[in-house]
């Protein structure tokens, strides 16, 4: 089975052809940033290399793993496949801007269930789940799985991710503990 469509997030298939530098002003975590970059540079690399926000991770570069998930306005997007030229004046939120001090209900649930193993995929998982809960505060188990299928975890923390989201959503939790 091939997962061409990764859950619900909208992502943009850019044609990476031109080599033109351009200036953009983007809004990240409530702050304006002026950047001068290749116009097809994916938002991921703008965030990581130019602005220095490293919480957003690189896992595949092809919208296949979800490690790079951020919010564009209220939607989860795969920043590795979303060129800076398409951002416009949308509000970008990264894991660094999700909450003041890691106290978003999902982050708290992640702590409670001790979800992470290596931790690498987890910021992307949390951002995708946060967008889901914004759309639908009480998703069913199946809706959770549908949305989260775009996020890979090689360490295999899926059971706890699902339990943590279910706990916040107030739907039946199925921790394997």
């Amino acid at each position: 089975m091939v997962f061409a469509e990764c859950g619900n997030p909208t992502f943009y298939c850019a044609t990476f052809k031109r080599n033109i530098m351009a200036k953009y002003s983007i809004q990240v975590n409530g702050k304006k940033h002026e950047v001068d970059v290749l116009e097809d540079m994916p938002l991921l690399w703008v965030l990581r290399d130019v602005i220095g926000l490293k919480g957003t991770k690189f896992g595949c570069g092809k919208a296949l793993c979800g490690a790079c998930t951020v919010h564009l306005n209220d939607d989860a997007i795969r920043s590795c496949s979303y060129p800076i030229s398409s951002v416009g004046d949308a509000r970008i939120t990264t894991i660094e801007g999700l909450s003041e001090d890691g106290d978003h209900p999902l982050q708290q649930a992640w702590e409670k269930f001790v979800v992470p193993q290596c931790g690498y995929c987890q910021t992307g998982q949390i951002m995708n789940a946060a967008a889901l809960l914004k759309r639908n505060a009480h998703p069913s188990g199946q809706e959770i799985e549908q949305t989260m299928q775009g996020n890979l975890c090689r360490c295999g923390t899926y059971n706890r991710i699902k339990a943590a989201i279910s706990a916040v959503a107030g739907t039946s939790s199925s921790a394997s503990k």
Binding site: K54, T56, I95, E96, W110, Q122, T123
Partner: peptide, 23 residues
């Protein structure tokens, strides 16, 4: 007993530094 991992908070807030994050 059960002791949560020490890097937990850094991981969920995006502060944990992996190889790819070195600068």
């Amino acid at each position: 007993k059960e002791t949560p991992i020490v890097d937990l908070h850094d991981i969920i807030t995006g502060k944990a530094v992996f190889g790819i994050d070195a600068v």
